[in-house]
Write a protein that binds this DNA or RNA. Structure first.
Lengths: 109, 109
DNA sequence: TACTAGTACATAGTAACACAGAGTAGTGGC
DNA sequence: GCCACTACTCTGTGTTACTATGTACTAGTA
């Protein structure tokens, strides 16, 4: 992946995944697929799993195991109340940053 | 600084500083001050100087030393052609990310 | 049986970057 | 002499996404 995007994803990827989960519960493989659909074609699978472990440990999601027709059981993640709060905080932080960058970009032209 | 913002700044702070320099040349202390004016009140001084060293080493800026009326000489950084190109690339990357996040945020409500 | 592909999760090691904190230097005012 | 302000430098730390690799289960197919 391009270095610039890699760095920019630090801090935002977590929010993106929480955002995906806010719609409805999902499991790792599914989340990876959705990210690819969204255009983040180069996000490594391992990255997503590591992130899911992290947000689980921080208590932002609840986890349930569901058997899969094909392959090993799925770990289905759903956003809980703390996760919802964290996501809202994420949107606020993102909003602030996006505003500043918008201003800067406007001014630079 | 809040952890969330710290992580989000990774990768974007470089673009912000290049954006500031695209307006006109500036020195480290001045850039720090401008960032604070913009609302990034908690960005550490050391962070800005380290970033400036990095973009100098990557050849995005030209540097000139100017004596100061108060304090040690200033290192004035100005964006060169490569820096300009890198900044444009930054805006493209940022634009992509911002669009995706916008969609996600809209969809989540 | 052996293989391939697709699904699904996990982890060890690495690089990049913002931070905290401390330090060095110069000027001017009290 | 001491403090405040200006201006830059450096060392060590934590977080995060990446690469690379591995495990495990199913279905198809030759």
């Amino acid at each position: 992946m391009r270095r610039q995007m890699t760095e920019m994803l630090k801090g935002t990827l977590e929010g993106i995944v929480l955002g995906i989960l806010s719609g409805r519960p999902a499991y790792g493989y599914e989340i990876t697929a959705r990210l690819r659909e969204m255009g983040f074609s180069e996000i490594a699978e391992g990255t997503v799993y590591a992130l899911l472990v992290r947000i689980e440990q921080r208590g932002f999601v609840d986890v349930e195991k569901h058997p899969s027709e094909k392959g090993p059981p799925r770990k289905v993640y759903s956003l809980n109340v703390q996760g919802q709060a964290h996501l809202e905080e994420f949107w606020r932080t993102w909003g602030f940053l996006a505003e500043r960058l918008e201003e800067l970009h406007e001014g630079g032209r």
